[in-house]
């Protein structure tokens, strides 16, 4: 898909559209510098970055749970065409948990340890719908079955600590999708899980996405899970997207040096025993205004211009863009 087409289309075409989002702290540190992203209905978009890249802050801004002292300085977040950057707490309640489902990283902390599983899932329905008790119960059990929880009637009466890590994560997913949201935000849902369970959870998210046509924003630092799950991917570095494209385009043909080196630093079968990291170690980021390419200091290919200007997004192939001056030279 061409980038021009994207911007020309009318907003409600997108489940979520973030335009030039900038998030700053009261000390003036720019945590998210300029993030624009768009998620179409039924699409799974990955947001990849290392710690400090601003991926969690972006998510918090979308969900409206930015911590004290951190606020949105610029930009819009359009959810189904409605700007949700400056809405009231009541309006926010109508969106979160209803049209917007959220899966957290640590399932054991996201659940109330003293409340039965069934009741916790039911609570989401209670808040957002006027269904009767029996209707709600049916739907709770139905959703629990939909996320492949075993023996749901029995399990609904259990407490969180009696479940395994994978089951708890499934419960969270059930809570997130029970109101048939338009968008599901998954914030590193598999980091606390074992390898085999991770695969199952990713499968489940994919199935939910396909069967209910729910868009998914998947946040992760792990390329291998993104590769399995996502359609498109945004690579963030220091609060700016440096490369955008379909998963295939970005992973098989990375254009930004950061993406390239990051992919290289993942140990694989072929690289056994070889050196993994070719970029310089990370230096402290003062988080001032971004005047040049933020990766220039670590980039082995950096040249004069990289240290003077902020590179714009260059198109590589339709739908695949990267912010690097090297692409400009190729074009010329």
């Amino acid at each position: 898909m061409n980038k021009l087409e994207l911007t020309n289309q009318a907003n409600p075409e997108y489940t979520l559209k973030v335009e030039h989002l900038k998030v700053v702290s009261t000390q003036g540190a720019e945590l998210v510098r300029d993030v624009s992203l768009a998620i179409k209905p039924g699409e799974i978009v990955g947001l990849v970055g290392e710690s400090g890249s601003g991926k969690s802050i972006t998510t918090m801004a979308i969900v409206g749970i930015l911590p004290d002292g951190i606020s949105i300085a610029k930009g819009k977040i359009l959810f189904q065409g409605q700007d949700i950057t400056r809405i009231s707490a009541d309006e926010r309640c109508g969106i979160n948990g209803n049209k917007l489902g959220i899966i957290y990283q640590d399932a054991s902390q996201a659940l109330n340890p003293l409340m039965r599983i069934g009741k916790q899932i039911d609570e989401v329905l209670k808040i957002h719908t006027d269904l009767s008790l029996s209707e709600r119960q049916d739907r709770v059990l139905g959703t629990m079955r939909a996320v492949n929880l075993p023996d749901v009637k029995n399990l609904a009466k259990r407490y969180p600590h009696e479940l395994s890590g994978g089951q708890r994560q499934r419960v969270l997913i059930a809570m997130a999708i029970i109101n048939n949201p338009q968008l599901l935000i998954a914030d590193e849902p598999t980091t606390a899980l074992d390898v085999t369970v991770t695969a199952q959870i990713l499968d489940l998210i994919k199935i939910i996405n396909e069967s209910k046509q729910i868009s998914v924003l998947y946040i992760s630092h792990d390329f291998s899970t993104v590769n399995k799950l996502c359609d498109r991917v945004f690579v963030l570095y220091a609060g700016i997207p440096v490369e955008i494209g379909s998963v295939k385009q970005v992973i098989e043909n990375p254009q930004h040096p950061y993406t390239e080196l990051l992919l290289e630093s993942i140990p694989t079968k072929e690289k056994r025993g070889q050196k993994l990291l070719r970029m310089k170690g990370r230096t402290q980021d003062p988080r001032g205004p971004a005047l040049n390419c933020q990766f220039a200091d670590r980039c082995p290919k950096a040249f004069g211009r990289c240290r003077q200007e902020l590179p714009p997004m260059y198109q590589v192939t339709p739908g695949h863009t990267a912010a690097c001056f090297l692409l400009n030279n190729k074009g010329e």
Partner: peptide, 29 residues
Amino acid sequence: DVSVQAQVLDLIQDLREKLEFSCLFISHD
């Protein structure tokens, strides 16, 4: 993080060559 992980792995490998110690490396990865 991925790039930091790579750095530490490279370092462990380097040090193993230099200092010649045995290693029990526990991981889920």
